[in-house]
Simulated scan of single mutants.
Amino acid sequence: MSDYTDHNKLILAALEEALVAGDEVDRDDSADKTFGLPEGLRGNLDAMNDKADSSATAAFTNLVTGIAIKIAYPNIDVRFHQIQIQDPQHFNHRGVSENVVYPFLRDQDFDGAKSGWQTRTLERPKPYFLNYDENIRAVKDEFLACYHALEEGGADAKQMLNYLFLGQVVRRNAKKIDLIEPRIDDISTIIGHFEAHFFADYKSRGQSRLPVLALHSLYKLIMPELKRFEGLDLANLELHSAADSQTGATGDIEIKKNDGSVFEAIEVKHGIPVSVDLVVDAAKKLVTRRVDRFYVLTTHKNCGQTDEVAAKIKEVKERTGCQVIANGVIPTMRYYLRLVQNPADIFPHYTSLLKVEPAISHEHRVKWNDIVLPD
Rank of each mutant, 00 (worst) to 15 (best):
K51G: 11
G95H: 12
T247D: 10
C322T: 15
K175G: 04
Q84E: 12
D87K: 10
G271E: 03
D109H: 09
V316T: 00
I180D: 02
L232Y: 12
N49G: 06
D111Y: 08
D111N: 12
K126D: 06
P224T: 07
D375R: 15
S30M: 13
R290K: 15
D345T: 01
I190F: 05
M223K: 14
E230K: 14
L45K: 14
R209K: 11
N162Y: 14
I371V: 10
D50S: 10
W117D: 04
A21R: 15
H193A: 04
A58Y: 05
Q89M: 11
D26E: 09
A243P: 03
L337W: 00
N342D: 13
D28N: 15
K176R: 10
Q118A: 02
L286E: 15
F199C: 13
L353I: 00
F80G: 08
R94E: 13
G231N: 11
H81R: 07
I69Y: 05
A326F: 01
F194W: 08
V276M: 15
P125Y: 05
Q159R: 12
V139C: 07
V296Y: 09
A174N: 12
I69C: 06
S115G: 07
Y335F: 09
R293F: 08
E225G: 13
K227M: 11
V274Q: 12
D292P: 14
Q84G: 15
I253W: 08
Y336I: 00
K220A: 12
F104H: 05
L354V: 02
K33Y: 12
E142D: 11
D281R: 10
I191D: 07
N44K: 14
A68V: 05
S54M: 09
F91H: 07
R289N: 14
Y147M: 02
E195N: 04
N162R: 13
V268L: 03
P348M: 01
K317S: 10
L234S: 06
F91T: 07
E308D: 02
T61E: 06
E225F: 10
G66F: 01
T332N: 13
D186V: 00
